[in-house]
Computed example of a mutant assay.
Amino acid sequence: MTELIDSLDQVAGHYRAAFVDLWGCVHDGVRALPEAVVALRRFRDAGGIVVLVTNSPKPRRGVKSQLERFGVPDDAWDTIATSGDSARAAMFRGAVGEKVFFMGEDRDLGFFEPLALIEAPAQIERVELKSAEGIVCTGPFDPMADPEALRPELLYAKQKGLKFLCANPDIVVDRGDRREWCAGAVAALYTAMGGESLYFGKPHPPIYDLARRRLAALGQDVDRGEILAIGDGAQTDIRGAMGEDIDSLFISGGLAQSETRTERQPDPDALGAYLRREQVSPTYAIGRLR
């Protein structure tokens, strides 16, 4: 049974670390959410460790720069684990071959920067689709266009038997008041067409392994029962937490704001109906992270 709470403080004392989603929880894709910043600062002041666990296809350095632009201060978090870093490691280990077709926007070309942590990395070369051994996707070419527009390229790739590396399993995100498609929507279409998609962000295990390695790098050995996952994605943040057997706090005022009729807090009946429909059971729920 999901418990509706009014602030992170109510349950923070049960946990030593928080795996916190970014988009829809800490910022809205344009600016920081002030109440969330205060809540994370308070958690850290009480001795908690904040790991920002994001399905961004950007490397950790790119996410840090983005946080600075949005006004999320450094003292609200300890370290960052990105889907991009997890997927990059797989790419440089040759998960989809060395000649890859890149599907995404130019702003995500940092995905191909060398990764020093991999011994004898694959020599990645971006090529046209007809010459590719695999696909690397950080998102659609146009995040406002229906992913169905990519069906011809995906059909060709499927017929060639190309693997599809998805650097961001999110289906959509809200950038301010504008909803955009993400790489997860393209990967879902490719899978539905019979292609093979490889995922590295939430709700899949690789990003949680990375988050725990980030904790270990801070000198912290934290049991599963001492970790709280916080996020607004039922099928990413909450399902991922359930798969990892860690507690979760669902932010209803993010992607599910309208479905849960969230103002300051969600409507309890609408929240219950939404969670049943999504077939997830977060430990707690709150309207906004505060």
Rank of each mutant, 00 (worst) to 15 (best):
T2M: 08
A122R: 12
P59S: 04
L210N: 09
Y274E: 00
I124N: 04
P143E: 03
D245V: 10
E278L: 09
R264K: 12
P282D: 01
R276G: 00
G139T: 08
A285F: 10
I227T: 07
P152W: 01
V127Q: 11
G104Y: 01
R88T: 02
D6R: 14
A81Q: 02
F250S: 10
V172K: 15
C166I: 03
R31K: 14
Y199T: 07
G48D: 01
K202D: 05
P203D: 01
F101C: 02
F164T: 03
P143K: 07
H27C: 07
V38M: 06
A46R: 15
L40H: 07
D247E: 09
W23N: 11
G201T: 04
I238Q: 09
F141M: 07
F70K: 06
D106A: 12
L67D: 05
D209Q: 14
Y284K: 04
S281F: 11
V96H: 14
L154K: 10
R88S: 06
A188R: 13
C166H: 08
E98M: 07
M144S: 12
A87Q: 09
P205K: 12
C166A: 09
L215P: 09
P143M: 01
I135A: 07
D221V: 08
D232F: 00
A167S: 08
G94K: 02
K163R: 15
L33A: 04
E259T: 08
L271P: 10
R290V: 03
C137N: 05
L129T: 08
E180G: 00
P59C: 01
D170Q: 12
G161D: 11
S7T: 10
Q10M: 09
I5F: 08
